[in-house]
């Protein structure tokens, strides 16, 4: 049996680890709240935009062209991977990295050139380790992505798309479905799906200024920007949730170990005392 002192020291050091993980849990919980609020704040905009595009598509009679809708034969694709700069958040980063690798293989299997854009230090290291070439990397987007920061990235991608350098754009990120469910997903950003011209609930006979087609041409790029922004927001919320869960589990496990170690310490202390006592009694008996 181990020395009681050594066991006590171990229990102490695990205690201080538990303190750290508990603090990280609390920070992640607070950050989660903020990130969640931001993701929710974007929702009215998304809903309105989707509704408006539907309205306009039905007004335009589903008969319009736009470069962003055009499906061209794909020679080069671009994939944006979004993860975090920091670790200690369970499987969050590796899930994204694995999906990026899988998607890369699938895209390359079609005989298509691929550029990978990675956001987040963790993803960058993991992809380098898996020997995937990264065309661009970003580490400046933290847990509060602003529309402007994300827009700068989207702008460049849309420009390259407009020049015909790339024909398809994907984004890999962790979708926030609920507080207990987040999963890494790969979504197609460009070309856009042609908005369905189905009859949406509104029966207003809108005036259009200018024409419905031109408004649609203004809205479609916005919906692309929004899609990417939403991906970054979701990734930020998912990161904090993942960290919150990971740190909660770590704290619980640490407390469990401390309990076991304390028991072990008490037992070994008792054994030691018993041994010493029996030695003394044995010694005394030998003297008689």
């Amino acid at each position: 049996m181990a020395k009681p002192r050594a066991i006590l020291n171990r229990a102490k050091s695990i205690g201080s680890i538990a303190k750290i993980t508990d603090t990280m849990y609390k920070i992640a919980a607070a950050k989660f709240k903020r990130a969640f609020d931001r993701a929710v704040a974007a929702r009215p905009y998304t809903d309105k935009l989707t509704q408006l595009i539907g309205d306009l598509a039905s007004a335009a009679g589903g008969d319009f062209d736009h470069p962003l809708l055009e499906v061209r034969p794909t020679k080069t694709a671009l994939l944006i991977g979004i993860s975090s700069n920091r670790g200690l958040c369970g499987g969050y980063n590796s899930n994204v990295a694995n999906l990026v690798v899988k998607s890369c293989e699938e895209i390359k299997a079609r005989g298509v050139d691929l550029h990978v854009v990675a956001s987040g230090k963790r993803l960058i290291t993991m992809l380098k380790h898996k020997q995937i070439e990264i065309a661009h990397e970003f580490t400046h987007i933290e847990d509060r992505p602003t529309f402007e920061e994300v827009d700068a990235i989207t702008d460049e991608i849309m420009e390259r798309y407009g020049r015909g350098e790339i024909e398809e754009v994907f984004v890999v990120y962790t979708k926030f479905e609920s507080a207990s469910r987040q999963s890494a997903v790969c979504e197609k950003v460009l070309p856009l799906e042609t908005p369905s011209a189905e009859e949406s609930g509104s029966s207003h006979n809108y005036m259009f200024h200018p024409s419905a087609e031109e408004i649609l041409a203004d809205l479609l790029p916005r919906s692309v920007r929004l899609h990417v922004f939403q991906a970054f927001l979701d990734a930020a919320v998912s990161e904090q949730t993942a960290r919150r869960m990971a740190m909660k589990n770590a704290t619980d496990a640490a407390n469990e170990i401390i309990k076991d170690l304390t028991m072990l310490y008490n037992r070994s202390r008792q054994t030691q005392i018993t041994t010493e006592l029996s030695e003394i009694i044995g010694g005394a008996a030998a003297l008689e």
Partner: peptide
């Protein structure tokens, strides 16, 4: 510029 007062006709504009 475009101004909107109550009872404006339904409109979508850029």
């Amino acid at each position: 510029e475009m101004a909107f007062y109550p009872m404006h006709a339904p409109l979508v504009g850029v």
